[in-house]
Design a protein around this nucleic acid. Structure first.
Lengths: 238, 238
DNA sequence: TGTACATCAGTGAACGCGCGTTCACTGATGTAC
DNA sequence: TGTACATCAGTGAACGCGCGTTCACTGATGTAC
């Protein structure tokens, strides 16, 4: 029943030398299981409509092999939460360069968000779907990660001159508002008709952002711009 | 297989006179089925973890009786979408009275929202959960209803002096932003620890809004206030 | 009011299916000497 | 390098269970005359 992940591989006296192929095989299967779950959720299933047997089948492995990697679907779900938020966090770090003036920052942020949703569609779809589907544990894990994500954004925001004097609480409040917009934007992109035609084009500057997607990005930009317009007014009127 | 809802009851020559008790019984069972589904989702299940048999069981009825009322769980889900958004729409109409000055309007709106989530918790929980769980059809239905809801809010917003000159598109944009905040707030309340102790107190002005709930309301108020602060700035800077 | 018939909400047995989980196993990879 | 043994990722049969859906039914309620 238990795949004991805390005490098993390469611990203590046994060195991890020379176990090449077997470890690789293990790693490949594990990835296949995760990918199978992601694919099924990207196809529209909610997390608890994804079955252990279905995942194993899609991964090309017998159901019992699943247990060599995860004790339950729940554990696989938590692994996907980890993985997905590593992706999202990378997104936050991306705009570290770029001027401090508000206008290009907003435009650039939306571009980064849209590009990330395109590039890591399955991770976003997983989070969006699992965020409110089934399983309290998983939901709570995602909610906590989103909260943490907002806190990191708040820290980043503190660097902007206009926000330097804001209280931590107010920064969190603003970050929450911005994260809400980001989530809604990501969900809108995921829901939009997939215009993947020509997505595999090698030519970089031809990237054909679909019409609805461009529309969503335009809306998000407006909303973020509106929100930031309030910033200089806050203390005086608040 | 089909419960034909478009051509059956009381149509044509047959008058709906004198069929009292039987119709009442039917209505009661239908309600029990809907309530059973709502209760299971309120308890944390995602929509497609709610089974036809489970709903029938909780409604105190044999599984096959379900088909006398709905052709499938899907149809029941759509009925719940209808019902839930009738509730939400009623919330929009509530603040029709109250001064046009922005400050009390915001406070009052948050109060109304919080009170509605408390009073119609199951409808909110259903929408929050079904919004991204399972079934594309249901998800799309809810997304469309939310869009409609935002449009109605946009129409209401147009009445405010400060917004009288805004384009329809910009009003929709603002309404979308406000709706995002409302959704996040409702979800936060649903996720907060339920402090239902003393909820049945007859004394009206004692209503013990739980501490986390009050916190959430305070945050929502701040976010809405910040958003509205941007309004006078929009055209000049936009 | 009384009788004969129609309607129809809910019953109960039965079906085939995919599920999660168990168990003893196989056989390739890795290790010790 | 060669042999004997250990590890362990993946196998395959088997289980009991709850599911959605079918079917012919029952019996109370409602209607016509």
């Amino acid at each position: 029943m238990t795949v004991n992940s805390s005490t098993s591989p390469g611990e203590g006296l046994a060195p991890t030398r020379e176990r090449r192929s077997q470890a690789q095989r293990r790693q490949r299967t594990r990835r296949s299981l995760l990918d199978a779950a992601l694919a099924q959720m990207d196809a529209g299933e909610s997390f608890d409509a994804v079955s252990l047997r279905g995942v194993a089948r899609a991964a090309g492995v017998v159901p019992t092999a699943f247990y060599r990697h995860f004790a339950s679907m729940n554990e696989l779900g938590l692994a996907l939460v980890d993985e997905s938020f590593r992706t999202l966090r990378a997104m936050l770090r991306e705009p570290r360069d770029g001027g401090p003036e508000p206008e290009p920052v907003i435009r650039r942020s939306v571009e980064i968000l849209v590009a990330h949703v395109r590039a890591h569609r399955q991770h976003f779809a997983f989070v969006a779907r699992a965020r409110s589907s089934g399983n309290t544990l998983l939901r709570r894990a995602i909610r906590d990660e989103i909260r943490l994500f907002a806190s990191e954004l708040a820290t980043d925001l503190a660097r902007f001159p206009l926000l330097r004097d804001w209280s931590t609480e107010d920064l969190q409040m603003l970050a929450g508002l911005l994260v809400n917009t980001m989530i809604a934007t990501a969900e809108a992109i995921l829901d939009a008709p997939t215009t993947d035609a020509g997505a595999a084009l090698p030519d970089g500057d031809r990237a054909p952002a679909s019409a609805p997607e461009a529309e969503i990005a335009r809306l998000a930009e407006k909303q973020l711009r509106l929100t930031m317009l309030a910033v200089p007014q806050w203390r005086s009127a608040g």
